[in-house]
Design a protein around this nucleic acid. Structure first.
Lengths: 370, 370
DNA sequence: GCGAACTGAGACAACGTTGTCTATGCTATT
DNA sequence: AATAGCATAGACAACGTTGTCTCAGTTCGC
């Protein structure tokens, strides 16, 4: 008895007040307190309402979302798992999705950084499952490893069985709705732009070959280019500015006469431009450079990068729509293709053509494709 | 009755199996099933153990951790609220803390992006409170507004009362343990470095004046500089590369003869260097530039930025230590001063001095101060 | 051979919230 | 004036899990 009492008072100090405390303080039943505080349509006497509100404030009541969740219902929280927080590619995804979630879906997005580790991605997913968030947006594509594919598939399956909606912003090797740009179309967009600007000898610096998206873009681009008289050399490197610089150096050493460098990410392009300018090479006068992603780096770069906007805000919004609109018993849905667009800036020039009069200086003049 | 039954079967389809289902299938009590599946030290007959495990697999049992959480205990999850996901200053904090949390504290950090909005910061804090995370690390300093200070203080108070430990990586206007570098010491470090390198005419581009940390650094630096014969001009601008470029332009127009530009962030420094180099100005030959934060931008910059490392990984680690070690009944604790260091790279030169033979090319040669 | 100690399984309450059911007091209608 | 109907508050079960309590069956020691 004594034990129980002391425990009770002890808890009063640390744990926060519950509905029971509020009800007791206000002198009403728990149900009434709940009805007032939940603000449901249920009619409650104005006087009691005030008493309950006052009591809630007095005892410092904070609703326990976990308990609420136990009974079911949406909580207005989605989890977002991104590949690498410092990679601007994922950074812009995190920024787009968190902003969209809050402004357009009155939802809170919590971001998990899987740190390029597929195993950690799964661990985070399990934690999110534990917390019973409404839904999860996967944005960790690019670091898939076959050793963890089954574990990931199983985890996503568990999530679905538990009623957590999962969507992905990138194609993965698992069954999940994908809201992503069409990577093959992007490859073709890039190829067309190269050809239209008269480049016939190009270097291609792509991200790691293990990345499915990279593969899709590359295959589409090269097969499209092969229809024209275009020579190209391809290298797969890490998607970082540092690797981009090294890659550009090697590319230059082996193929000294290419006039355009097509990069698999803005990060690679940034590093490449840094290196090339350091070597005194005029960009885009001597070599035109193109990135991918329209990240922060694209405008930080000098000259500003011509790149591809992948509209992650739209993709994120579509994924959020999917998550909030579908119930646990959602029919499996293939996802949605998000349109992309070419953002033309100063790093890419028409080969041997006359300088365009009044070249676009605007930063977001984009040609929407598909 | 009919209703209830149909509801039950309906739920069977979507919701996942519970312990009750497992127990029923295995023909044991719920307690026994729980004991087997929880793997607690409690002795259970081997035969029953196998039966329960088989049943769990058969019905596809996934533990509902929300229910588990309802009973209390630490969950191994901390929330991190950062100011702006796209600002490299906060990006490096998010990266440092999430990595530290996982590797050194076996804890998961979930990141919330307050999007420069103090009101949103509070909303996120409330969501984290409702989710009952173990602790929260505030890293949204820099966007404080007096209109929301009381609301923030009240929210933090509620958090504490609910047993959620709160720590901050930046000084705020509220009562909370702070794990941060000593901003006055940083100001002095910068001032000393300027003087030691013989610069006597400098420009200073700082972030917004509303930021307390900025103010502290500025006051310490200028009061220290005033002990020497140093002329300086100060401007407060946004902490972005774009503002840095504009700021540098204006600074150059008004004080054409300064030899060093001290910036309040790497972002400002990056933008300033971009602009100055675009104007054909040699960095650091004509103007030396210094940043703050040692973010990704510092090494992306050409030339690489001399900057101040603020050791957010150590600060984050200390904050995580604080959160995990203290219980809800934690004594209020002042926090901890995290040491900073100067990272010398190529963007800052000795004025009128001979070119140092074999200037440091290494990226992380730092002089630890304090 | 009988009681004590022990082993292992089931019953049950509790976590905090919410929806449903019931009970009560009041108004309105015939 | 009496009852039907309505408005509103309280009681209670349920969500799924876990710790504690109880109890039955067994073994061991004296």
């Amino acid at each position: 008895m004594d034990n129980k009492l002391s425990k009770a008072t002890e808890e009063k100090d640390t744990k926060n007040a519950t509905l029971v405390d509020v009800a007791k303080t206000a002198g009403v039943s728990v149900s009434t307190a709940a009805r007032v505080l939940r603000n449901s349509g249920y009619p409650v006497d104005q006087k009691l309402k005030e008493r309950v509100n006052a009591a809630a404030k007095a005892v410092g009541y904070v609703p326990n979302l976990v308990a609420r969740r136990l009974r079911g219902g949406k909580q207005g929280v989605v989890g977002l798992v991104i590949g690498d927080m410092l990679d601007s590619h994922y950074g812009i995804i995190a920024e787009s999705v968190t902003k969209r979630a809050e402004t357009a879906h009155s939802t809170f997005a919590i971001v998990c950084n899987m740190q390029r580790d597929p195993l950690l991605e799964i661990k985070y997913l399990r934690k999110l499952l534990e917390y019973r968030v409404d839904g999860i947006i996967l944005a960790g594509g690019g670091f898939d490893q076959w050793t963890h594919r089954d574990a990931l598939a199983e985890t996503v399956d568990e999530l679905n069985r538990a009623g957590t909606i999962v969507a992905s912003l990138m194609p993965r090797n698992i069954e999940v709705p994908v809201f992503s740009a069409d990577n093959e179309a992007i490859g073709i967009t890039k190829a067309n732009f190269i050809v239209q600007n008269g480049h016939t000898k190009i270097g291609i610096l792509l991200g790691p070959a293990r990345n499915d998206m990279t593969k899709q873009r590359m295959q589409a681009m090269t097969s499209h280019l092969s229809g024209y008289m275009v020579d190209y050399a391809i290298a797969n490197i890490d998607s970082t500015p540092e690797a981009g610089a090294l890659g550009a150096a090697e590319m230059l050493a082996r193929n000294p006469d290419f006039s355009a460098l097509i990069c698999g990410s803005d990060a690679i392009a940034f590093g490449a431009i840094s290196y090339l300018r350091g070597e005194g090479i005029d960009i885009p006068g001597r070599i035109s450079v193109m990135g991918l992603g329209n990240t922060r780096l694209a405008t930080l770069c000098t000259p500003a990068l011509t790149t591809v906007e992948m509209n992650f805000d739209r993709a994120g919004s579509a994924a959020l729509d999917f998550i909030t609109s579908h119930d646990a018993s959602a029919v499996s849905m293939p996802g949605e293709v998000i349109s992309h667009s070419l953002v033309v800036r100063d790093s890419f020039a028409r080969l041997n053509g006359p300088a365009e009069p009044g070249a676009e200086d605007t930063q977001h003049v984009g040609v929407t494709i598909s």
